[in-house]
Design a protein around this nucleic acid. Structure first.
Lengths: 145, 145
DNA sequence: TATTGTTATACTCTATAACTATA
DNA sequence: TATAGTTATAGAGTATAACAATA
């Protein structure tokens, strides 16, 4: 059952294809006002607490102008707030609002509902595989930053 | 070691975050002339042989106008050719060229090289997990189409 | 009429370059 | 000078709507 990593040759290709296609699907399923990028950045602020915009950009792996846009959209959706740093006039911290945190813990989000419906018939073993894979990927991205 | 499926974040959220972030990274690492979408469609033509554009769009989960664009870019890069269907003047088949097939089997592609470098220090167990996860995801996308 | 694919148009996500304000 | 963030601009990827050609 445990397939050999002899398929190793093609492993990067296979991971790339799966990720390309699933992320496309997730974007299609996302609500217009709540894109995957917004959710990802919002999760990051919740996990890290108030965080300067530049650090948030670095953590998410995007450039600062991109994060400026993402934060703008989160702020206008009342999911995050910006607070000027009292000690450094150049810097503003980004933080999730109560509504932003509530949204993340709510399960009815369209994208997650879609993914959940995809996953619902998988055996527990496959669910654990996906969970572990997500963990491995996050670890890789973290260490490569 | 087998983590329970209930952690702080729900499984769909965790999969979504991992996929969002990795696909962003892969897009950043891709060559301008050879995007993830192009590679994905090209893989599909190689796997399926000559295939009408509309069917290719359906398999890849994009709309026909999108596939028209992707195929145009593959054709102008000499990675694919279009052949009019002799029995149906409305339809054209898409097929990988020898160069397209060679490209897919070449290992030096920038995106895959990047992914391979990310993966190279993972233990075999994690590689097998990712491999199996890719398989599960492709299966889900296939069955949901 | 129905189907296959294209053209026209627009929106999101992202980047780089140039800029402003502060340190 | 250096740093934090924004504005301006551009390109990729995708969608929907309207269209043409063919069935």
């Amino acid at each position: 059952m445990t397939s050999p990593v002899a398929t190793d040759l093609q492993l990067p290709s296979r991971v790339r294809l799966a990720v390309t296609r699933l992320s496309r699907r997730l974007r299609q399923q996302s609500s217009p006002g709540l894109t995957p990028s917004m959710l990802s950045a919002l999760s990051c602020t919740v996990r890290n607490g108030p965080i300067p915009l530049g650090k948030l950009a670095a953590k998410e792996g995007v450039q600062p102008p991109t994060m400026t846009r993402i934060v703008e959209s989160l702020v206008s959706a009342d999911l995050a707030v910006r607070t000027p740093d009292p000690n450094d006039g150049r810097s503003t911290s980004v933080e999730a609002t109560a509504e932003g945190r509530a949204l993340l813990s709510r399960r009815a989000r369209k994208t997650d509902a879609y993914l959940a419906s995809l996953l619902k018939d998988l055996p527990g073993k496959d669910l654990r595989t996906l969970e572990r894979a997500a963990e491995i990927i996050e670890g890789l991205l973290e260490s490569d930053r």
